[in-house]
């Protein structure tokens, strides 16, 4: 196991918990009709966003997808700005112009999330190109799902990232379903990471339910990128507990499969490990939980109390 300080271990735990409890709370509010539109939720995949973003500096960047809440929390977008954006309030991180699928905050290194599958990957290359030309040692992580790897954008972008040796890490969250379609119907390979060999870059499979494993693999890839050695494709095998979106009961998934993955829950597993290592006690766990819950309630209250945008701002921000 990699050497991490007690503080870092607890930070990883707290961040995963923040994402889980935030998503659960947002779901309740959605059912109460308080959150407009739909939601694509991140429960189950927390170890990926947290394990990867914990390696990054504030001035490193990420691109995200239609399922961005976890990435946003892990990269440090203030939770109240995320909540306000979900509620369509003017205090949201995107001034209520983006919504759930476009959460982003440039000041902490998160581009507005891109909800067209695969389309963030070429853009991440451009961010990396800027870092490379300016020799800044910053890196960019592009998060995308298994579905994106069947899209042409993936192919064009990984090839270009490879030939230009860009400081970019391609993080595929393989949750085994593109919407309702199981990956076995749309891909003959067992491991998406094998596709890296087509571009001459390293491809690594990692247990996406194990935050320390994700952290370890991401650290290696980020170091490579910072040292000018080019991109890595990381495939994190993980699982989304919810349906694709809030209207999806996910009847296409066998119960046993869901139970299997839930038995490997990233937060539960990590808590167990931290208890064993004596990094965490039940008492401290309760304290962290109540702190996280308090932060979430503050964020939700901020969102509820924030004003709606004045309609005319719909016409602003088209051009700089």
């Amino acid at each position: 196991m990699i050497e991490l300080s007690r503080e870092k271990l607890l930070l990883l735990y707290r961040q995963m918990l923040s994402i889980r409890l935030f998503e659960d709370r947002v779901y309740q509010l959605f059912l109460l009709g308080m959150v407009p539109s739909t939601l694509h939720q991140y429960q189950g995949q927390e170890a990926v966003a947290v394990g990867v973003c914990a390696v990054l500096n504030r001035d490193d960047f990420i691109t995200s997808t239609h399922r961005p809440h976890g990435h946003a929390i892990a990269k440090g977008v203030p939770m109240k700005r995320i909540a306000a954006e979900l509620f369509g309030k003017v205090t949201g991180c995107c001034r209520a112009k983006g919504g759930s699928m476009h959460i982003g905050d440039y000041s902490v290194g998160m581009l507005p999330a891109i909800a067209i599958v695969g389309s963030g990957i070429p853009i991440a290359n451009g961010v990396a190109l800027a870092f490379k030309l300016r020799k800044t040692k910053q890196v960019v992580v592009s998060f995308f799902g298994d579905g994106a790897t069947n899209n042409g954008s993936f192919h064009e972008a990984l090839n270009m990232g490879a030939i230009y040796n860009l400081p970019v890490i391609y993080v595929c969250e393989n949750n085994f379903y593109g919407a309702s379609t199981h990956i076995s119907k749309v891909m003959k390979l067992e491991n998406i990471a094998d596709r890296a060999s087509a571009y001459g870059i390293p491809g690594v499979v990692v247990d996406g339910m194990d935050v320390l494993e994700v952290y370890r693999v991401a650290s290696e890839a980020v170091n490579r990128a910072r040292e000018g050695e080019g991109p890595t494709l990381i495939e994190c095998k993980t699982y989304r507990y919810s349906g694709h979106s809030r209207s999806d009961p996910a009847n296409y998934r066998p119960k046993e499969e869901v139970e299997f993955w839930k038995s490997r829950d990233p937060i539960f597993q990590f808590k167990k490990k931290l208890l064993e290592l004596d990094v965490l006690s039940e008492k401290e766990d309760n304290r962290i939980r109540s702190e996280v819950e308090k932060e979430i309630e503050e964020a939700i209250n901020f969102a509820i109390e924030s004003p709606l945008p004045s309609p005319e701002i719909a016409l602003e921000d088209v051009y700089a």
């Binding site: 961010v127 064009e156 972008a157």
Partner: peptide, 26 residues
């Protein structure tokens, strides 16, 4: 060639890379 960048025949990759670079101030 750092500033005049030849690309593969990858129009999506070209425009996407240009967008990302532009966002970062190039």
């Amino acid at each position: 060639h750092e500033r005049v960048i030849d690309t593969p025949i990858s129009e999506t990759g070209i425009v996407g890379m240009a967008i990302g670079a532009a966002i970062m101030g190039l």
